[in-house]
Amino acid sequence: MPLVPTGELVAAVTGSASTALAAFNVISLEHAEAIAAGAEQAGSPAVLQISENAVRFHGGDLLALASATAAVARASSAPLSLHLDHVVSVGLLHAAHEAGFSSVMFDASKLDYDDNVRATAAAVRWGHERDIWIEAELGEVGGKDGESPLDAHAPGVRTDPQEAATYVADTGVDALAVAVGSSHAMTERTATLDHALIAALREAVPVPLVLHGSSGVPDDEIRRAVAAGMVKINVGTALNTAFTGAVRAYLDAHPSVVDPRKYLAPGRDAMAATVARFLATVG
């Protein structure tokens, strides 16, 4: 089916206390195929998101990975959107429209507050002129490639509700990723979220809230976060954990295999099952 704009998928679940939209990171064609298959199994919409790190991994070629991912999405029976995630480069932001993305997460969170506001507001103006939905981040989720480990419970790390309300008003963003106790790249699901803070942010901020680093959050914590006001749930590392575990198990059992199709298939199936499970968790 045709790609669905991310903003439409988000709007369909905004205000629900039992349903959120899950977004999954794409690194390879197998990731895209697994996300589509998992969404079909669950009978749910989903977002296929490509990060700046993934683009860098593919030699900086956004169009090749985006085109392949979009082709997989269009061939699926599930409602799927294409999202560009954690974009730091303004050049990559400006490539999003031609590459077919309906949404971008512009990440100026490493800048000081005033510079973050200026850069994000400019990104929003550019995006809205092209009907591109813009997400931003305030607070420190941490854990991305190249970053030192972050204590998600350290003082000053979490998003302040009043600052978030001012930030949204000054930038015009369509959604806000907030720091409430999760961290990127967690391989164990041990994160504890601050649900009172989520509720306070939901009350203070007039746009949908986004939870990054959801791979490390247990199912019950995710459900409570959705009930408290989280609208978009980002998942990446959990897919890689499932994929790598299945590939490793296959190669351990079949050490003479050299055809990558033999071990990529169980890895892709494991990711699809993980996608379906997260989609069931978010409703």
Rank of each mutant, 00 (worst) to 15 (best):
A249K: 13
S109V: 09
L82T: 02
T19R: 15
E52A: 04
A165C: 06
L150E: 01
S76C: 12
K110P: 08
M230T: 14
V141F: 02
N240V: 10
A73E: 06
V47Y: 00
M271V: 09
D115T: 11
P45S: 15
D131T: 12
A70K: 10
A42D: 11
A165F: 00
A119L: 03
H254S: 10
Q49H: 13
Y263A: 06
G43S: 13
G245I: 06
S51A: 08
A20I: 03
Q49D: 00
A200E: 14
A276I: 08
V47C: 07
H212V: 10
L21C: 05
N240A: 13
A54N: 06
S44N: 05
A108K: 05
T241N: 12
A164L: 02
S148G: 14
A23W: 01
P218F: 01
S76R: 06
R189V: 03
D170C: 09
A17N: 14
R158I: 02
R268F: 01
E33C: 12
F278S: 02
I233M: 04
G7K: 13
T120Q: 00
R261P: 08
I27L: 14
W126S: 05
L80Y: 09
G143W: 02
E135I: 11
S214E: 01
H97T: 04
S18A: 15
I233T: 09
H86I: 03
L65T: 03
A196C: 01
R118I: 09
T14H: 14
S214M: 01
G181A: 12
T120S: 00
H97Y: 13
A22V: 06
M186Y: 02
W133E: 02
G146H: 07
M105V: 11
S183E: 05
A270N: 09
V210S: 07
D259L: 06
H97V: 07
L80K: 04
E163M: 11
A225C: 08
S44E: 13
G156C: 04
G267F: 02
A37K: 03
L176T: 09
W126C: 03
K262S: 14
G283V: 08
I35N: 00
S18T: 15
A12F: 10
G172R: 08
S77K: 15
